[in-house]
């Protein structure tokens, strides 16, 4: 697994590189700003890009913009963006790119839970969508969203879906049968007006519904 890593803090960059190495990823390039990230991604055609959002040159959301651009050029490239804080506008744009396949948005602090972080990276590389639990929780807390229509249990299920877990994993976490998880997800999709189609990414769309609702200009 070839990874391009972008993080402006040297210590953390080296730590992350060590972590990725430790878990069998190959860090083909580790860079410290957004322009270098774009160059490295073009040069190495990695399987995964892990990038900090706040980076030089402007120290605002350079990493996120670079990530969105990479995804636009190559929707198949798995990208995980690390943020100091929840920032919806670009998060939604990033998660929306490529139908939400193979993309992640995590708070930076997650990296210290090494195994969970690596598992999230693997889910993204496998085509999953990973959204930070805190982001999801915040979205689910919004009473103005159609989530108001969902039951407490359905919210829990959706939160786990958003984190990229499979039905089986969700069933284990909530101590429920896989069948009832399937039923809950069916209810969620129905309540969110996501009618069945041959699109296999309705799970992702369910999560994206909130983001779109939050930022109607993106739809």
């Amino acid at each position: 697994m070839r990874v391009v890593l972008a993080e402006d803090g040297v210590l953390l960059r080296e730590g992350l590189a060590g972590l990725l190495d430790r878990f069998g990823f190959t860090v083909v390039a580790s860079v410290g700003d957004a322009p270098q990230l774009l160059r490295a991604a073009a040069e190495h055609s990695p399987d995964l890009v892990v990038t900090d959002i706040r980076m030089p040159p402007t120290f605002t959301d350079d990493g996120l913009r670079a990530a969105v651009r990479l995804r636009r050029d190559d929707p198949g490239l798995a990208v995980v963006a690390l943020s100091q804080y929840v920032q919806h506008g670009y998060a939604a744009e990033l998660l929306d790119s490529g139908g939400g396949v193979g993309v992640g948005y995590l708070l930076k602090d997650r990296v210290v839970d090494v195994e969970d972080f690596v598992a999230a990276l693997r889910r993204v590389v496998a085509g999953g969508t990973v959204i930070d639990p805190q982001v999801v929780r915040r979205l689910l807390n919004r009473q103005s969203s159609p989530i108001a229509r969902l039951s407490q249990r359905e919210r829990e299920v959706l939160a786990l879906v958003a984190e990229g877990h499979s039905n089986a994993a969700i069933a284990r976490t909530l101590v429920l049968s896989e069948a009832s998880i399937g039923k809950h997800i069916g209810n969620i999709l129905a309540k969110l007006d996501l009618t069945p189609t041959d699109d296999t990414n309705r799970r992702v769309l369910a999560v994206l519904t909130y983001l779109r609702e939050r930022f109607p200009e993106l739809s």
């Binding site: 803090g9 210590l11 953390l12 080296e14 060590g18 430790r22 210290v112 090494v114």
Partner: peptide, 16 residues
């Protein structure tokens, strides 16, 4: 903050 995240990450790795 940056150093602390780096340190915590190292501790997480060391534990493994």
């Amino acid at each position: 903050q940056q150093k602390l995240v780096g340190l915590t990450l190292q501790l997480g790795l060391a534990r493994l």
